[in-house]
């Protein structure tokens, strides 16, 4: 599902490693990744807590990188996922050269089915669907990347601080996380969106990020907890480095693969959430997005006028992009996580 609310969890046990009092029942010995509708549930590291960082010794990264590459090129999920997403990235970049129509240029004669002139037909307003799709993919990637970045950054800020500092800071941040996690993201966005004058793509992404960080934060916090007690962190601390430096230099790199997985899930989630906002008509105006295309198609009678070429492509493309991202995530997880490679 959308994962918009709670994407990044899933790979890692929040509670398995966290001290009592974190959200899932403390008795959860398996500590497995309670994750949004099981999406990408990756219990792999559950018992052992942190698989990808299991050999965080100096010198190890290089050897491991080769190992990852070896498994990466043999992982079907990863390959399929990356090629699907990569294909649409290419379309987003080079698509505008393939079309001779501006996305919002109207013709004069109503809607037309796909033809040689208009590969995907035209809309009610005789706009070229293909060029709308091309620009829509761009917008989707923009929102996805920005929204994903916003929430990962917020999640890192909260997660690292809470996990590394511990104590009352952790208590407070954890409380905030637990509160935000329960509030339904989309309902919240609807209320805010209803009052904003007009949403730009950037604002849309920022709003999505503002409410979808808790899962990232919770998972990162749990990881930080385990990492901060490792020797190399202790060494760094002894050598008198500042906390932020330790987090940035020692802890973050050791969970970089993990952060990447988190980002990919949030990326996909942001695209889906944006498509909801755009579909209900609260999205950015004057910009073509795949969500606004569906909104226009729906409210301009595409169903009853049988203009199927108007609403089929945008939804199918979102499905492929987000599905591809999730697949990439699962593939990467298997690559980073030896326990999952077996099947």
């Amino acid at each position: 599902m959308t994962d918009a609310d709670a994407p990044a969890e899933g790979m890692r046990p929040a509670s398995g490693t966290a001290p009592a009092g974190s959200d899932p029942p403390p008795v959860l010995a398996h500590g497995t990744a309670p994750d949004p509708d099981g999406m990408a549930a990756q219990p792999g590291a559950a018992t052992e807590a942190v698989a990808p960082v299991s050999s965080p010794l100096p010198g190890a990264p290089k050897r491991r990188r080769h190992e990852f590459l070896y498994f990466a090129v043999r992982n079907k999920k990863l390959l399929v996922g990356i090629s699907v997403v990569g294909f649409f990235v290419l379309v987003a970049i080079f698509g505008p050269w393939l079309t001779s129509y501006a996305p919002l240029a109207t013709g004069n004669t109503g809607w037309h089915p796909p033809s040689g002139r208009h590969w995907l037909g035209t809309t009610y307003f005789d706009e070229d669907v293909f060029s709308q799709v091309v620009y829509g993919i761009r917008a989707s990637f923009e929102v996805g990347v920005l929204g994903g970045c916003f929430s990962v950054l917020l999640g890192m800020l909260v997660g690292f601080t809470a996990g590394y500092r511990g104590g009352w800071m952790d208590e407070i941040l954890n409380l905030v996380t637990n509160v935000v996690i329960v509030i339904p993201l989309f309902a919240m966005l609807l209320i805010i969106g209803g009052y904003l004058h007009q949403l730009s793509l950037l604002w849309e992404a920022a709003l999505i990020g503002m409410f979808s960080w808790p899962w990232a934060a919770r998972a990162i916090r749990a990881q930080t907890f385990t990492l901060k007690n490792r020797e190399f962190v202790g060494l760094a601390r002894l050598s008198g480095e500042s906390s932020s430096k330790i987090i940035w230099r020692e802890i973050a790199p050791n969970m970089s693969s993990y952060l990447m997985l988190t980002f990919i899930l949030l990326f996909g989630g942001a695209i889906l959430t944006a498509s909801f906002i755009d579909f209900v008509g609260l999205g950015p105006q004057g910009v073509v997005t795949l969500g606004t295309m569906m909104n226009n198609a729906f409210f301009w009678d595409a169903l009853d006028l049988h203009i199927w070429w108007w609403f089929l492509p945008p939804g199918a493309i979102i499905t492929c992009i987000v599905g591809g991202l999730y697949l990439t995530n699962a593939g990467l997880d298997e690559v980073f996580n030896p326990k999952l490679r077996s099947l």
Binding site: D5, L28, D37, F186, A187, F276, V280
Partner: peptide, 19 residues
């Protein structure tokens, strides 16, 4: 068991889907 926890976490997205 973990799936059940997942159910709680997915409620927010279900709300969106429902709307």
């Amino acid at each position: 068991l973990p799936q059940l926890t997942g159910l709680a976490l997915a409620l927010g997205t279900f709300v969106a889907g429902q709307i």
